[in-house]
Amino acid sequence: MSAKEESPLKKVCIICAKGTIEDVYATLVMANGAVMEGIEAKVFFTFFGLDAITKKQMKRLKTATVGNPAMRAPGGLPFPTVLGMVPFVEMGVSAMMKSQMYKLDIPPVEEFMEMITAGGGELYACKLAMDMFKLEKKDLYEGVIDVLTIGDFYGKCGGDNTQIIFT
C-alpha cells in the first residue's frame, strides 16, 4: 500500500441486475476480490441477475451472442450478429467462455459463491424481482442470506468508505 492511501475502501455493495455469464462473473470477481482484500462485500441480486442465485439456473448462465459487438470469434475474426441466432451457437459460445475462465482458475458460479461467503461476503435477493419472477426463498442457492427490499439493502450499505456498484 502506498503512503498516499489514507482512507482505504471498507465496504462494497454490488447490485447484480443482469444474468449473462459476463455480468454475473463481473459481480462475483468484484465481490470475491473485495473480501480477499479485507473489504466487506454485500451483493444484491435483482431482475435477471437472480438467475445467478436460482438453483435451477445458476449452472446454466449464457453469454448473449446477439447484439454484442465486442464479441469476436477466436483469432479476432468478426462475429456477425446473425450467426448468434443460429441454433446452438449461444451454447457453444457460452461453453467456450466458461472453459476459458476455468483455465484461469475462475470457478463455476456456485463454487465462486462459496468462496465469497467463506470470506464473509453476503448474498441477498431482491424481493420485488422475486415476486415478479414468482420465485421463493427455497428456489435460491443456500448461501443467500435473505430476501430484501432495496430499502433494506440500502440499510446495510451505510458507513464511511462504502461504495455501491451496479453491474
Binding site: 482484500e37 482458475d105 470470506g119
Partner: peptide, 21 residues
C-alpha cells in the same frame, strides 16, 4: 482456490489463518 483444493485448509480456514488478506 488452489489453496482451498490443496487439502491443507479450506477457503474459510484460510481466511481464519490470515484474516483480512
Amino acid at each position: 482456490r488452489k489453496v482451498g483444493k490443496s487439502g491443507i485448509v479450506d477457503i474459510k480456514g484460510l481466511y481464519g489463518l490470515f484474516p483480512g488478506g
